[in-house]
Amino acid sequence: MAIQVLSSCSIENGTVVVNGTPEYSVENEVFSDFLKSAYRHLDISYPKYFKMDKLCQLAFLGTEYLLKTNDIPFTDDEVALCFFNGRSSLDTDSKHQQLINDGTKVSPAVFVYTLPNIMMGEIAIKNKWYGENLLILRPDFNFEEWALEADLLISSGKATYCLGGWVDVFQDNYQLHLYLVEAAEIKMKLTSI
């Protein structure tokens, strides 16, 4: 079996590209400001967004931009989330560690984001998706290898669609490549072959 891409979204260097077409772009905006302006451009209201850490915000943005182009009526458990990520939650880990090093009281609101899989939780909550979750850490992104994992989730019958790809955040560096894929299988009842 193989998979086929339904939609894609890339976010890097202040530009959101959806299905190959630039959707939103700003120059010289620091990452935290970009996360705000790109959210505003989406024109949705989701106050929880502002509680998230940068990794979750980026993953959330990418998912929202990607889903905007597709109005597939997903059932609540047919979308598997499968993410590759490079530097785990180290960006928020450092914040938590800094509080410890400074002897300041640590914050549960920070600590909860010291797990990289939280971004899948945020996406699942927003979309009411109860499907499979998988997060793999690796130093870089390779679409073919990701497609292999997505293919496995779909071909093993665990999901009809797989959403995911690469989300990586560390300090002011960020990169996102998300894909929504489905099976490229054709269901047949041919008996003459």
Binding site: D76, D77, L81, P108, V112, I118, M120, G121, E122, A124, I125, N127, K128, W129, Y130, G131, E132, N133, L134, S156, G157, K158
Partner: peptide, 29 residues
Amino acid sequence: ATSNDANHISGPSRTGEGLYRAVDKALKY
């Protein structure tokens, strides 16, 4: 199988919906 509660990032779902579904799928597979 795995599944998500789609409820809250740090608190478990009150109804156990996510775990129920994970067990359900594991049984199915």
